[in-house]
């Protein structure tokens, strides 16, 4: 039997995950009630410029169940270790590689903020391809810190040599 709308007797066709409370909450609504619910949410957020958190919450409300969201929240960037949940909470990314790690999730957010998804302005004069190789340094340094914290000094010194070699090669070029 199809689920009924929370507010009326019509079948619930919209499944909204509300993120503004402490726990994600699922709401099952018919089209009409969903529309008025979302409109009301929009009015409540200050009429000024949309905040990043607001835009993000609005965007995630649609088309994700609480389970899908919980899973997404746990995903972490392999380079800096930030989880999507942490980004969502702080509104700040952890490293340049996050734009690759969370590309799919960030895309609609960027379109929402900027109305576009591709840069057309200035480019660095030096070769830009080296950015990806450079993010490898972020990962190596983080791994070294972990090794030091675990008192695995052998591994830490291996990593330190690797980092040095990497830095020297980059500076030479």
């Amino acid at each position: 039997m199809p689920m009924k709308c929370l507010n009326c007797e019509k079948p619930a066709t919209f499944h909204i995950t509300e993120l503004t409370g402490e726990q994600p909450q699922e709401l099952h609504l018919c089209e009409e009630c969903a529309r008025s619910y979302l409109m009301q949410a929009e009015d409540k957020s200050d009429a000024g410029a949309p905040t990043l958190a607001g835009v993000l919450a609005q965007q995630l409300k649609l088309g994700q169940t609480a389970q899908e969201l919980a899973k997404l929240d746990q995903r972490a960037c392999p380079v800096c270790g930030i989880t999507f949940y942490e980004f969502r909470q702080q509104g700040r990314l952890g490293c340049p590689h996050d734009y690759v790690s969370f590309e799919k999730e960030l895309e609609p957010l960027l379109v929402n903020i900027h109305g576009d998804h591709a840069h057309v302005g200035k480019r660095p004069k030096r070769v830009a391809q080296s950015t990806d190789r450079r993010t490898e340094l972020i990962r190596l340094r983080r791994e070294m810190e972990k090794a030091v914290a675990k008192e695995d000094y052998e591994r830490a010194s291996q990593l330190r040599d690797q980092i040095r070699a990497f830095e020297e090669k980059e500076e030479g070029h």
């Binding site: 734009y99 690759v100 998804h117 591709a118 840069h119 480019r123 660095p124 830009a128 950015t131 993010t135």
Partner: peptide, 12 residues
């Protein structure tokens, strides 16, 4: 220095 730059997204 090498700036963080993405082919499609520009300066990160």
């Amino acid at each position: 220095v090498t700036y963080a730059f993405h082919e499609r997204l520009g300066y990160l």
